[in-house]
Nucleic acid binder design. Structure first.
Lengths: 362, 362
DNA sequence: GGTGTTTTGAGGTACGCAACTCATTTTGAG
DNA sequence: CTCAAAATGAGTTGCGTACCTCAAAACACC
């Protein structure tokens, strides 16, 4: 009827007695300090294993005295997603303070890898951990590796540098996100056939490129009735996205689906709206006859104030979302666990790809 | 360029000096102990506010010494979702041990409110916190209130008792979940019209009833082309669900959508499969002609080994999921925060309604 | 002014561990 | 066997809080 999940409450002293050594030796083993014979190390570790001993985090944290400092290196500029991450970090301030964790924000130009690398190098030595929204570039990779070598824990956030030796990546699998977007567009279009448009910031951005790759993959294999038009590069700007898309709508009458890979959502929505007005003017059918199914299926990314409104209005059909609050908290938790030498609850820290439609808006 | 988020590292001693009182008095104020003049209380609280002082959790945890004990009261029987929750709690064991948290599982019959109430009453006094998968029943409500009155922190898990004085509910909004299911079925069916079947465990279960309510709401207002058939009550059993559904398929040829509200997924899938074979035998069309769009759109709940397989095979189109790992961890974190008197990160502990399709399977 | 009560101060102990020192023992090389 | 180096033991201190005791001070009331 009742079953216990947790171990006993042993202390280091008990382990020392068990292993037949002194407290000092256990301490040396626990912290990989030199001066212990391999054989003794084994004995101590065995005693720890045998009792599945876990140092009391509170005691450890208290004893080490020094507060921990983390830095978040984020892109400058008005990116709403990044602003959300910062906001959620702000909400954690009481939580952080109670644990004597110092978190500092460092901003740097997104599109300048060498500036990012320099910012990272500048952090060396001052921080226990660094979370960085990274660019995949040799200089950045080197800077990350340098930090790791200096003993700083490093996690990449949102955008990964898999070739670096960063300890962890907190973010989604962008190829899977693109596949999900593709499946949604395809399924929501239904039996109709026609063309599908893609608007991205730039194909040079790793995350955008990966999403497009996943999207095309699904379209090619599963929705032969739909053909994907060449990618429009809107540079995440509203005006540019609107113009490019407007022109595309002009030259292709049979566009039934639209995937917006990055930002610039405002512009995309405007172009869509213009097209709808245009279509209505062209033929005399009543609105009810045009109906939902005549509309362009529109799938994008991230839940912001704008996409929330578009979802509620029915302009947007689904948003692929990575929960920024979860990402912020996961980054802090992972850094803390790494710094403490605790295991990471990988299931907990994994960022899911959320499909958000009108009725499950968070 | 760099901005700090966290406060200074004051201690109780500093607050005492600031307020012009002794450590003992600060301690009395902090823990609402009697014997302090209202005026002095005000002075101390002002000093705490002014410095936005947060007691060091590690020190507090260490000082109080006593380990905390939590109980999880869960339904007995082979419910895969509940088993997943238990499994995730098991994965946390190192995390729990490092914090000297004891978590115990208590199982009780799901469908017997008085047994549940008795189990809850039996816990009184022994635990700092209780998480319970509750039934909404007067006896259970009373038992929960008794626990709360005795100083035990109580959170309801998965299924709420809103009328009780439980401190927190960890679970999803089931009406919104039903609405989401409805929107998915409607949108994935596309332009076709026809009938939609619902299989539930029992309409007496609060969560099932709420989901059905939400589902019908969306169907009625947004998909006039689809008509919902009367709910089949499969009691979450495979065989019964299969039979009921098979009979329904026999009497209605134009079923285009199916919503499985609870468990019994295996049976539902079997009935669907039989129908597919049947349809193929009846007409001579090639499979390619029948195509995806002739299939019944199938939306259900929860990602289990079975639903995962069905999603990958394309039998199931989407699963509405509440992340069991998140629920388990959120319940523990909320209980811990309540026990410590810390604020709860409500955004973090909110359980989202996940839409899971093949490409964003976790 | 004296009495009893309430409020406050001062101080101690304990929690489990990190980090350190210094003395002592063990080990291995010559 | 000798001696230096390596390994280990024993012990101390401090982290910031909770919780406790006891005495002193302030207060209220008659």
């Amino acid at each position: 009827m009742a079953e216990t999940l947790t171990a006993t409450a042993l202390t280091l002293k008990d382990i020392a007695r068990e292993a037949g050594v002194s407290l000092a030796t256990v301490d040396r083993v626990l912290h990989n300090r030199p001066g212990v014979r391999p054989d003794t190390v084994r004995r101590v570790k065995a005693a720890i294993e045998r009792n599945s001993f876990q140092p009391h985090v509170a005691a450890a944290e208290l004893a080490r005295g020094r507060a921990r400092r983390f830095a978040f290196v984020m892109p400058s500029g008005p990116n709403p997603f990044m602003q959300q991450i910062e906001a959620y970090l702000g909400e954690m301030s009481a939580w952080l303070a109670a644990r004597r964790l110092g978190v500092e924000m460092v901003t740097t130009d997104v599109f300048d890898p060498s500036a990012l690398a320099a910012s990272l190098e500048a952090l060396s030595g001052d921080y226990d951990g660094v979370a960085v929204v990274a660019l995949d570039h040799p200089g950045v990779r080197a800077a990350i590796n340098d930090l790791v070598d200096a003993g700083t824990k490093v996690v990449t956030l949102v955008s990964d540098v898999p070739s670096s030796r960063r300890h962890h990546y907190v973010g989604i699998d962008n190829i899977a996100a693109g596949r999900t977007a593709g499946a949604l567009v395809g399924r929501l279009v239904g039996q109709r056939s026609g063309k599908v448009a893609i608007v991205a910031g730039s194909q040079g951005l790793r995350d955008h490129a990966e999403r497009i790759f996943g999207f095309n993959q699904v379209m090619a294999t599963e929705f032969p009735g739909l053909s994907v038009l060449p990618v429009l590069e809107g540079r995440d700007e509203d005006d540019r996205s609107e113009q490019l898309l407007g022109r595309l709508f002009g030259s292709h009458a049979d566009i039934v689906g639209l995937y917006n890979v990055g930002a610039g959502t405002q512009g995309v929505a405007k172009a869509l709206n213009d097209k709808a007005l245009n279509d209505k003017a062209l033929n005399d059918k009543a609105l009810s006859e045009v109906g939902r199914d005549k509309q362009v299926v529109f799938v994008g990314h991230d839940v912001t104030a704008l996409t929330r409104r578009l979802l509620l209005q029915g302009v947007m059909d689904a948003a692929i979302s990575q929960n920024p609050g979860h990402e912020a908290r996961a980054a802090v938790r992972v850094l803390l666990a790494l710094a403490r030498g605790e295991p990471i609850l990988s299931e907990q820290e994994k960022i899911r790809i959320d499909i958000v439609m009108r009725d499950n808006l968070p």
